Amino acid sequence: KTYTFRVRIVDEETGEEKEIEVTAKSEEEAKKAAEELKKKYPNLKVELE
């Protein structure tokens, strides 16, 4: 079973919002993916929905 999570990304500089879908095998995995995004884009606000 896989879970699909919507991750909302807000670029703090431009105020631009993007939504991406993360497919993960567990909620834990999705959280890790969101953390990776935060590391990659430090000025983005990442929200897991």
Rank of each mutant, 00 (worst) to 15 (best):
K1I: 11
K1V: 09
K1D: 12
K1F: 07
T2K: 12
T2C: 15
T2I: 11
T2A: 06
T2E: 14
T2S: 10
T2D: 15
Y3C: 14
Y3T: 07
Y3V: 10
Y3E: 06
Y3M: 08
Y3S: 05
Y3K: 11
Y3Q: 08
T4C: 15
T4Y: 11
T4K: 12
T4L: 11
T4I: 14
T4N: 07
T4R: 10
T4S: 06
T4G: 04
T4P: 13
T4H: 11
F5I: 14
F5C: 07
F5M: 05
F5V: 13
R6S: 05
R6N: 05
R6T: 13
R6A: 04
R6E: 02
V7N: 00
V7Q: 00
V7P: 00
V7F: 12
V7S: 00
V7Y: 09
V7H: 00
V7G: 01
R8N: 03
R8V: 11
R8P: 01
I9S: 00
I9H: 01
I9F: 11
I9A: 02
I9W: 15
I9R: 00
I9K: 00
V10R: 12
V10Y: 13
V10C: 11
V10M: 08
V10E: 02
V10G: 01
D11F: 04
D11V: 04
D11G: 01
E12V: 12
E12Y: 09
E12N: 08
E12R: 09
E13H: 10
E13F: 11
E13T: 12
E13Q: 11
E13R: 11
E13K: 10
E13I: 12
E13M: 10
E13D: 09
T14K: 02
T14A: 03
T14N: 04
T14H: 02
T14W: 01
T14D: 01
T14P: 00
T14S: 06
G15A: 03
G15Y: 02
G15Q: 03
G15D: 02
E16C: 14
E16A: 06
E16D: 06
E16Y: 09
E16Q: 08
E16W: 14
E16M: 09
E16V: 08
E16F: 10
E16L: 09
E17R: 07
E17Q: 08
E17H: 09
E17M: 12
E17P: 03
E17Y: 14
E17F: 13
E17N: 05
K18R: 14
K18I: 15
K18T: 14
K18M: 14
E19V: 15
E19A: 06
E19K: 06
E19Q: 11
E19H: 14
E19P: 01
E19R: 11
E19N: 08
E19C: 15
E19D: 05
I20P: 00
I20W: 11
I20M: 06
I20T: 02
I20S: 01
I20K: 00
E21L: 15
E21W: 15
E21I: 15
E21G: 02
E21R: 05
E21K: 07
V22C: 14
V22E: 00
V22S: 01
V22Q: 00
V22Y: 06
T23M: 10
T23D: 06
T23E: 11
T23S: 11
A24P: 00
A24K: 02
A24Q: 01
A24M: 05
A24I: 03
A24Y: 11
A24G: 08
A24V: 12
K25L: 10
K25C: 14
K25D: 12
K25Y: 14
K25I: 11
K25P: 08
K25H: 14
K25A: 14
S26W: 02
S26T: 13
E27V: 13
E27A: 10
E27W: 15
E27G: 04
E27S: 06
E27F: 15
E28W: 11
E28R: 07
E28N: 07
E29I: 03
E29D: 12
E29W: 05
E29K: 02
E29Q: 07
A30S: 02
A30T: 01
A30P: 00
A30L: 13
A30I: 07
A30F: 10
K31L: 14
K31H: 13
K31P: 01
K31Q: 11
K31I: 13
K31S: 07
K31D: 03
K32W: 12
K32M: 11
K32D: 07
K32L: 13
K32I: 10
K32A: 11
K32S: 08
K32T: 08
A33W: 15
A33N: 04
A33L: 15
A33D: 02
A33Q: 10
A33S: 05
A34W: 15
A34T: 10
A34C: 15
A34M: 15
A34S: 05
A34N: 02
A34P: 00
E35P: 00
E35K: 05
E35I: 07
E35R: 07
E35D: 10
E35L: 11
E36V: 09
E36K: 08
E36S: 07
E36Y: 09
E36F: 10
E36C: 13
L37N: 01
L37V: 04
L37A: 02
L37M: 06
K38V: 12
K38Y: 11
K38W: 07
K38D: 02
K38T: 07
K38R: 13
K38F: 13
K38P: 01
K38E: 05
K38G: 06
K38S: 12
K39H: 10
K39F: 07
K39R: 11
K39Y: 06
K39M: 09
K39T: 07
K40H: 07
K40S: 06
K40A: 08
K40E: 07
K40N: 05
K40M: 14
K40D: 05
Y41R: 03
Y41V: 02
Y41K: 02
Y41G: 02
Y41N: 04
Y41A: 02
Y41I: 03
Y41L: 03
P42T: 05
P42W: 03
P42G: 04
N43S: 07
N43F: 09
N43R: 07
N43H: 12
N43G: 12
N43P: 03
L44Q: 06
L44F: 12
L44V: 07
L44E: 03
L44T: 04
L44C: 14
L44D: 03
L44S: 12
L44K: 07
L44M: 13
L44W: 13
K45Y: 08
K45Q: 08
K45V: 10
V46H: 04
V46S: 04
V46Y: 06
V46Q: 04
E47M: 13
E47F: 15
E47W: 12
E47L: 14
E47N: 10
E47I: 15
E47D: 10
E47S: 12
E47P: 04
L48M: 12
L48Q: 05
L48P: 05
L48E: 05
L48A: 05
L48K: 05
L48N: 04
L48I: 13
L48H: 05
L48S: 05
E49S: 13
E49D: 09
E49K: 12
E49H: 13
E49F: 04
E49L: 14
